[in-house]
Simulated assay, not measured.
Amino acid sequence: MPEEAAKILTYEIERNGDTAVVKCHGRLVAGTTEEMYQEVKHLLPQLKALVVDLADLTYVDSMGLGALVRLYAAARQTGCDFQLLHLGKQLRNLLKMTNLLSVFGQTEDHGINIA
């Protein structure tokens, strides 16, 4: 059972005016991303800034990375600023391997924190 629990993604969305902070916990992996993506995407037209806090994320696979890229693209389409916070070593390495670090690197000047 502990292994099953480790696979679960949970998240909270905190709104503060026209900014939303999505705090992710657990594993951002295949089968766990679509609900979060859809819920956050629905909010984007109402936001000026979206912050994704990854401090409590333990693992990200290619589907999880895809969800982050999709959120980034959707935010950019609506004119919403996108920030990643507390980027862990595993995700940073994944971004390097996929040459996406430069895409998300634009957020470094605006608050990306690397654990």
Results as ranks from 00 to 15, higher is better:
K41T: 14
G64E: 06
Y59G: 06
V52Q: 02
L68D: 01
L71A: 04
L47R: 01
D53P: 11
L71S: 03
A55H: 12
D53V: 13
D61I: 08
V69M: 06
D56K: 13
D61N: 11
D53G: 11
L65M: 08
G66R: 06
L68W: 04
P45N: 08
K48A: 08
L54K: 07
K48G: 05
L43E: 14
V52D: 00
K48S: 10
L71E: 03
R70Q: 12
G66T: 09
T58K: 09
D53K: 05
A67G: 08
V60Y: 07
M63E: 13
L44P: 08
P45I: 10
L43Q: 15
D53T: 13
A67N: 06
Q46E: 14
L57R: 00
H42P: 00
A55N: 09
V60R: 13
A55D: 08
Y59K: 08
H42M: 15
Y59E: 09
G64W: 07
Q46C: 05
S62K: 03
T58R: 09
L57Q: 02
L68K: 03
M63I: 12
R70H: 08
K41L: 08
G64T: 09
L68A: 10
A49T: 14
L71R: 04
D53W: 00
D61K: 04
V69W: 07
G66A: 13
Y72K: 08
V51D: 00
S62C: 15
L57G: 07
Y72F: 15
V51R: 06
G66C: 09
L47I: 09
K48F: 00
L43G: 12
R70E: 05
H42V: 13
Q46P: 04
L57F: 00
G64A: 02
S62R: 04
Q46K: 12
D56N: 12
L54N: 05
Y72T: 10
D53R: 07
R70V: 05
L65R: 02
G64Y: 10
L68F: 03
K48I: 03
V60T: 14
V60K: 12
R70P: 03
A55V: 10
A49C: 10
K48Y: 00
K48W: 01
D53A: 14
L71Q: 01
M63K: 14
S62E: 05
T58Y: 02
G64F: 06
L57T: 15
V51E: 02
K41W: 01
Y59C: 04
A55F: 03
L54Q: 02
V60A: 15
V40S: 03
Q46A: 10
L71H: 05
V40D: 01
T58S: 15
H42A: 15
Y72L: 12
G66W: 09
V51K: 03
L50P: 13
D56I: 04
A55C: 05
L50H: 04
L43R: 13
L65N: 02
Y72C: 14
Y59H: 11
Y59R: 12
G64S: 11
D61H: 07
V52M: 10
L44K: 01
R70Y: 05
Y59T: 08
L54I: 15
V52E: 03
Y72S: 12
V40M: 02
H42C: 15
A67C: 15
L65E: 07
P45V: 12
P45Y: 02
G66H: 06
L47D: 05
S62D: 07
K41E: 11
G66F: 02
A49Q: 13
K41C: 11
G66L: 05
A55E: 11
